[in-house]
Design a protein around this nucleic acid. Structure first.
Length: 262
DNA sequence: ATGGCGAATCGCATTCGA
């Protein structure tokens, strides 16, 4: 049975409940993974989602910051969460579906302004988070798994609007790109989005501050869909639903979709 | 450099995102 999955940094699930409902109605993914919900779990609005058939949810929340959730119209048979790098943040939640696929939803720390852990603690936290992910996958190789989320790194030259200009900007520095590659290798993860869309510029985030985001198009691909090698070849039809960035009171991220025939 | 915005919080300004 094929199923379609989407990942979206929502930047407040309470403020943007209307456009979450709109995405569910218009694009109808089976599973929607959200990041930056910025809400305690008990304050996440669920009734509207349930009314559209999304009656299954797992969430890891905290007040005001971070927060991730997986919303599904397919049953969730097991759930988990882990505090990577022991930051005390709600940045990961996992769900297993009846088909045995485990979905990991991550919100990797943004990392602050300066790409130097000696002067910027947040950059150190970002690297520590990635190291912990890497070691975790190395110790326990995932199978039949999908990893999605806002990984806050644009790894390829064509994942950013200007590679040279962003080499020293957090999200595209060589040290981050290398750290992300180590995470990917340690878990046998395939970048499904780029397996399906191998050529050309591709972005999922455009700054709020840039006027005329669509025309200027100074974006970055910070959001990702990965799958373990045993199921990656079943992934297809990846797409960024770019026009969502232009909706009323938008998130600064657009959702990414992929379909898996499993 | 995008960073000229936007969200959350015990705001009446500050922190955070990227």
């Amino acid at each position: 049975m094929p199923f379609t999955l989407a990942t979206w940094n929502i930047n407040s699930v309470r403020l943007r409940e209307p456009i979450v409902l709109k995405l569910l109605q218009e694009e109808a993914p089976d599973v929607l993974c959200l990041q930056e919900c910025k809400s305690p779990v008990d304050k996440i609005p669920t009734e509207g989602f349930a009314a559209l058939g999304y009656t299954h949810m797992v969430a890891n929340g905290q007040k005001g910051y971070n927060g991730v959730m997986i919303l599904s119209r397919l049953p969730i048979v097991d759930a988990g969460r882990h505090d990577f790098a022991n930051l005390g943040h709600a940045r990961h939640v996992a769900a297993r579906l009846e088909n045995g696929v485990t979905i990991h939803n991550h919100y990797v720390p943004a990392g602050g302004d300066k790409p130097d852990r000696e002067v910027n603690e947040k950059f150190g936290q970002k690297l520590d988070y990635l190291t912990d992910m890497r070691d975790d996958f190395h110790a326990n190789r995932p199978e039949r798994s999908i990893l999605v989320g806002d990984l806050n790194i644009a790894p390829r030259e064509d994942d950013v609007w200007d590679h040279k200009k962003l080499l020293k900007v957090v999200s595209h520095t060589p040290i981050e790109v290398e750290a992300l590659a180590e995470v990917q290798e340690s878990g046998n993860w395939v970048d499904v989005t780029r397996a399906n869309i191998p050529e050309g510029k591709l972005y999922s985030w455009w700054s709020y501050r840039a006027r005329d985001w669509d025309v200027a198009d100074k974006g970055r691909r910070l959001d990702h869909v990965w799958a373990t090698t045993d199921i990656a070849a079943s992934g297809h039809s990846s797409r960024v639903v770019r026009h969502v960035r232009g909706w009323e009171k938008p998130s600064d991220h657009a959702p990414i979709f992929a379909t898996f025939d499993l």
